[in-house]
């Protein structure tokens, strides 16, 4: 565990907590893509099956349980408890365009052709693009609430910090995982446009509004 990975994990944790607080306090999931949240739940379920087969550390187990619980909880809040506030008219990204290619790619490009390994690989590929329905929704409505922007910033920073972690691990531990690295870079690149808007607008106290 190095400082970049810890910072990345904490950023990921912060993103999820920000989202849950937003939904819970405002009693609304307006502006949030339920489709992205379903994809994240699939990501965690397929990646953390090793909870039952491998013990890495108490930290690792606790984080996995939290990510699983919170992602399934978010889907529950959006599709059941606060269903009336879910803005489904603007959440129209076709997720099969993400699910099918990532599923196929994980069957072809993986470390080992085994069920657990393919599901892990699928979760890595799917995570890299799972935010697209949310970004699509923001671009469709042309704006995002500040709290949604903070959520997206924390979520994007997480994989960016992981890239620093991978550079560190490559130099100091001789460890690298090419699948995670390439997918993580793709994932971070998808946020670049948003990062620019966040820094130039939201941090200056303005609402995130896309140029018309």
């Amino acid at each position: 565990m190095n400082i970049f990975r810890l910072a990345g994990d904490l950023s990921h944790l912060a993103a999820i907590i920000i989202l849950l607080i937003k939904i819970w306090k405002t009693r609304s999931c307006a502006g949030i893509s339920g489709r992205s949240q379903v994809l994240f739940a699939i990501v965690f379920i397929t990646r953390y099956l090793d909870l039952f087969t491998n013990f890495i550390s108490a930290y690792n187990t606790a984080m996995k349980v939290f990510f699983l619980g919170s992602s399934i909880g978010t889907v529950y809040l959006m599709y059941l408890k606060f269903k009336a506030t879910y803005d489904h008219n603007h959440d129209t990204f076709r997720i099969e365009f993400l699910l099918l290619p990532t599923a196929l790619l994980s069957l072809v490009l993986n470390h080992e052709f085994s069920v657990m390994e393919i599901l892990w690989t699928f979760s890595i590929y799917l995570e890299s693009v799972a935010i697209l329905p949310q970004l699509f929704m923001v671009s469709k409505t042309g704006e995002a609430e500040s709290i949604t922007s903070h959520y997206l910033f924390a979520l994007g920073s997480y994989r960016g910090l992981y890239i620093l972690n991978w550079i560190y691990r490559y130099y100091f531990e001789g460890f690298y995982d090419i699948i995670a690295i390439v997918a993580g870079c793709v994932q971070t690149i998808l946020y670049c446009d948003f990062f620019y808007l966040y820094i130039t607008k939201v941090l200056k106290g303005k609402k995130l509004q896309l140029p018309a």
Binding site: H12, M63, H111, D177, A180
Partner: peptide, 10 residues
């Protein structure tokens, strides 16, 4: 062999 190692990242 990296495929034998567990994925230790989240």
């Amino acid at each position: 062999d990296e495929t034998e190692e567990a994925h230790d990242e989240l």
